[in-house]
Amino acid sequence: MPLAIGSYEKLGVLTDGADLLNLAWTQDERDLLGADVMTVVAQELTAEVAEALPYTGDYMVKDPYGEGVLGPVVADFFGRPGWSASVTCGAGVGPLLHDLSLLAAGATVEVLTDVYPDHPHWVARAGGRCVPFGAGPPGDIVLLERPALADDRFAGLDAVRELCTDTAERGAVVLIDESNANYCPAGFSAANLAAEVSNLIVVRGLSKAYGLGGVRLGYCVSSAALTGAVRGVVAPLGASSLSLRIGRRVLGLGDVTSGLRARIAANKPYVRDLLTAAGLPEPVAAADGLPYVIFPEKPQVVVESLLSRGIQGKVQPVWSARTGALVAVGRLSVPLAAHRLAELESRLDRTATP
């Protein structure tokens, strides 16, 4: 089973060029945030040097999971200071999901929504198995993404709370990949339930929306009862001390994505209309907040058609919660900057503006 990172292998350069508008991923988000996060990062790096590199030289063996540094600011980010939930840090969402797959060794993971194929791949490598939810005997772990690519059944916290309550009765753990939830308000996150229920693990990072994937920092918010289980599989010292310093400052800014959310909401339906008017199969809007349109049918044909017009999309592998097999969808990131939207219009022979 290929990993999601493989979907980039056949792409050329990953930035715009004279002959290419690259919409394989979103690269115009940061200017729409309520704070200049790159300036914030630069300030932290400057302070690190001015203070004689305290974090760079600190091995942090007394805080191996980063909870001492990041835990309080994560609690404040969700407006829940002093909560009983635990925070466990790692080198990004992907590595954390890799480690958490060890919870499924010899166990069954029920998958509720379509997910990136990485975690199911690692579950299989650990000796577990992934099955569509309800396709057999109840599983030991329930996996879902929030927001899912095109599935809003668990968009509300009441639905997640009910899921946790129901699965707790049979001793199952609910594992939620919220790497895309940076596109949503802080109140959207299932992390807000972690101190209320006993069987929840929520994984988040700084890549989406913030554009800070290179910082390599992800964090799990989990119910206190699961702290031992999470830290039994997540490698200690996975997040660098310097990344924790930067992450603490960035999350300390609070919710800075409201402007980004507004632009995504404005541009996404317009881009769908552009694509349809250009003769492409009608795209499906990804879930609320996500800056994507997707093509479930004939994704390779669609991506090749776009590329012939100088527009780079991508064929994204997905583990299907309906079939329990790997499928592919075409994905196009919605251009957010005005000049990139105008470039898309030009390449699709349209001149209107939203």
Rank of each mutant, 00 (worst) to 15 (best):
A325T: 15
E29W: 09
L20I: 11
G57F: 12
P81R: 02
V41L: 12
E304S: 13
I294D: 07
G213W: 11
Y183E: 03
T167V: 11
L144Y: 04
A155V: 09
P2K: 12
F78A: 02
R161V: 10
A135W: 07
D140I: 07
A285D: 11
G68K: 09
V234I: 12
V40S: 01
L100N: 06
K62P: 02
A321N: 05
G252S: 02
V271M: 11
V173R: 04
D76N: 10
R309Q: 12
N22G: 05
A126K: 12
L260P: 00
S86Y: 08
G17S: 15
K208D: 12
A91L: 04
A278R: 08
T88F: 11
G68Y: 02
V318E: 07
L103H: 03
A107F: 06
P281D: 06
V293W: 01
V160Y: 06
R272M: 13
R245V: 07
P72L: 01
V230Q: 02
V334R: 00
R331N: 07
L217E: 02
G228W: 14
V13C: 03
R231K: 12
V13Q: 10
G289I: 08
V203N: 08
G134S: 03
V13L: 07
G211S: 09
L237D: 13
N199Y: 04
D31P: 10
S241I: 08
G90K: 05
G94E: 08
H339E: 15
S7T: 09
V111N: 01
V109E: 03
A35W: 00
G313Q: 06
E304H: 11
S84V: 04
V329T: 14
A52E: 12
A342I: 00
L280T: 07
S189N: 05
A265Y: 12
V174W: 06
L280N: 06
I264E: 09
L242V: 15
M60P: 02
P132A: 01
D63T: 06
V49F: 15
A277F: 05
R309F: 05
Q43D: 14
V173E: 00
A50Q: 14
L251I: 03
V142N: 03
A224P: 06
L14E: 08
L217H: 02
A75G: 05
V302G: 06
T113P: 03
G279T: 10
V131R: 10
G34F: 01
V109K: 08
G218N: 07
V197T: 08
K10M: 14
R125T: 10
S241G: 11
G228T: 15
P137W: 00
A181V: 11
V13H: 04
S198P: 14
T167R: 14
D349W: 10
L53R: 11
V293E: 01
V115C: 02
D273K: 12
I141A: 06
E44K: 11
